[in-house]
Amino acid sequence: MHWFANPARFMRIAEKLLPWVAGAAVLSIAAGLYQGLLTSPADYQQGETVRIMYVHVPSAWMSMFCYMTLAVASASFLIWKHPLADVAAQAAAPIGAGFTAMALITGALWGQPMWGTWWVWDARLTSVLILFFLYLGYIALVNAFDEPERGARAGAILALVGVVNVPIIKFSVDWWNTLHQPASLTRLDAPAIDPAMLSPLLLMALGFQLYFVVVLIIRMRAILTARRIRALHMVEPGVESGD
């Protein structure tokens, strides 16, 4: 971990890694979409609308994965003062908010034909909506200070406080009687899903994961560059700043 603590070294490695990860993301999302939209069977109950699941489920997984990334980065920023951790946290938050919004929107599009309603106030949907507000609150808090350092530290504490919501989302379908179906993959016995549907789902999940890494690297690079411009600007008042 500490070997990566040098921002310049991180930028160099990320630069080399980026095209490969981006290529893999494009390939797996393309393969997942091909299988999901064309070769996988329609569900015997849900019909063609089951294909929304190939976007909805990976987005929902990623919405929680991004939050855990945000929380772990915030913790290592507060505990070890890792110089890249707050950059990673600030870079991950808007991506997570995007995935959460996508999970909510695709869920509503699926719910309208299946449940007959765009939205129900059940435990899973409400807790994901709260997750979305937590992301927005984090982004607002980080940007609310004149000193970026103070914003990063306040945001890190907020991110750790918000972690209480993650197990609530995960287990909401088990703890309460909800309209949302319980987990199909992470069960003790075999996954309750047909292999022909499982393969596009996992491909899409992998593709979303790789996409997250690509956007994270690009955003981290942007934040580091913005900081360097800011530092230059402070040393030499004559240098034009980008914003």
Binding site: T126, I130, F133, L134, L136, G137, A140, L141, A144, F145, D146, R150, G151, A154, I157, L158, V161, G162
Partner: peptide
């Protein structure tokens, strides 16, 4: 109190604190 301590010194702290705290009070 968690929200109020986080926004100390922030711009528009009064609005921001509601934005942070209300989701947690659900």
């Amino acid at each position: 109190a968690v929200g109020a301590s986080l926004v100390l010194g922030a711009r528009r702290a009064g609005v921001l604190v509601s934005l942070l705290v209300l989701p947690l009070t659900v």
